[in-house]
Design a protein around this nucleic acid. Structure first.
Lengths: 246, 246
DNA sequence: CGCCAGGTTGATTTCGCTCAAGCAATGTGG
DNA sequence: CCACATTGCTTGAGCGAAATCAACCTGGCG
């Protein structure tokens, strides 16, 4: 359960100087609108493991992720849960259900301590219908998501597990990694290996073996959740794929 | 008052009484706007096999499919082409690139003789920024597409080829099929087996064997491109998947 | 301490891919 | 009208990637 205590004061700021504003839909709003909007939103904090919304739940509004990391899951027909994708600061969560006036078809779960702004459904819908630019921002967001969805589908049936692993490590590296002098990329996995496996649509055992293989090829080296990546360039024909971190 | 000069006599109608209007984004426009819009669009016809736009091409506008069938392809890293999905009357083509101001990342090809309306980019963008409801319609469309994308991803890694085959046959049946007295569903495949194979992310050989298998199980029977489906119910746990035909 | 979740490893199986051949229908040019 | 590609599809044989099943290890943690 999210903490009840603090609403807007938590981050000690209003939306006008939010870190992620430039990356979110809200920079379609002018300063005036932003101030109104500021009073609309409800600031919430989540601990790692906290659910933000659940699959099948009615959509009450959307969330703007300010800080932290969120996993988007979907249960598969066998009942087990499946990590579909990750959401990073600046992302908007739950807009699919919001737009379609639908139930959530995925579960969102904080993977790190995260702070986000909740914007209730009905005033937001009014705001969007008054403000075409805001609407268009959302449309742009959806278009980006559609592009990555197509690319994922293609990647899934064109590349074997080790390639997909390199690819996601590089993507994660953009957010969590740092390069050293040799040009090697270091990163600490923000998620369990099991979740990493489902992100690339495979099983933990297969992931484990793929890691072995890439280590033997001297492409990566793992030590717990710390990863060192080298010479990935030649293994990434299709590296232009995912969105840039901003 | 019908306009005297009608660019669009091809279909003998303006947008106000277009068959697919109710299914398209354009029914967000009022009668007045529709008339203006009618003069904006350019009616085009394509023969089976004609390309509508090509992967990598600049996006000049979007297409509203009035009649026919269109295949959306994407070339995979090995250079071969991949059928990603089909578009049916009422669908809007090329809006992803339009919204993102991007090149087309897919190729659209008429699979049957098709008639469509082309709406040039720049006036449409103006129209959308003036008309939030229109904008929101597109957003709804994108949201639907995102939902199916998620469902496809899940299906792809949860179900074997024969299940995926049943699933797509049922989906195609909604558009091309007819039921007989026994409740069996008949349909004629609008695409080659090779394209059908890539729609369910497999190879023609594997598709062929999956068909054999389902025939032995008395679930389907093929005769050329004519398919008869029976007793699919129990094989479709997840049948709520795709959009309804409208 | 025992227990458990997260992770690895090994053995085995299976699904689907590749390669290769064959075949029917259609087209094409001499 | 025949010889011959070409296209769409099927079939067989073999292989390989990844799933499955099962055991086991490790580090927390009550």
């Amino acid at each position: 359960m999210p903490s009840i205590i603090d609403f807007n004061t938590a981050s000690g700021q209003d939306c006008r100087n939010c870190d992620v504003k430039g990356r979110s839909e809200w920079n379609a709003l002018d300063s005036n609108e932003l101030e109104t909007f500021s009073r609309l939103r409800i600031h919430r904090k989540f601990n790692a493991g906290d659910p933000i919304f659940l699959e099948g739940e009615a959509c009450e509004g959307i969330y703007c992720l300010e800080k932290g990391l969120v996993g988007i899951r979907k249960s598969d027909p066998n009942g087990s849960s499946f990590m579909l994708r990750l959401s990073y600061p600046g992302d908007t969560l739950g807009y699919r259900a919001f737009v379609s006036d639908d139930f959530h078809e995925t579960t969102a779960e904080a993977l790190e301590p995260s702070s986000m702004c909740f914007i209730p459904k009905s005033p937001l819908k009014k705001l969007m219908h008054k403000n075409p630019s805001l609407c268009f921002r959302f449309l742009e967001h959806a278009a980006r998501d559609l592009k990555t969805a197509d690319e994922c589908a293609l990647q899934l049936s064109s590349y074997p597990v080790p390639s997909r692993l390199i690819h996601i490590l590089v993507t994660l590296g953009r957010f969590f990694g740092a390069s050293d002098n040799d040009g090697a990329l270091f990163l600490t996995l923000p998620i369990t290996k099991a979740d990493l496996a489902s992100l690339i649509h495979t099983r933990p055992e297969t992931l484990s073996r793929a890691i072995r293989k890439l280590e033997n090829d001297n492409i990566v080296s793992f030590s717990g959740r710390t990863v060192r990546l080298t010479n990935v360039g030649p293994h990434l024909r299709n590296s232009h794929g995912h969105e840039s971190p901003g």
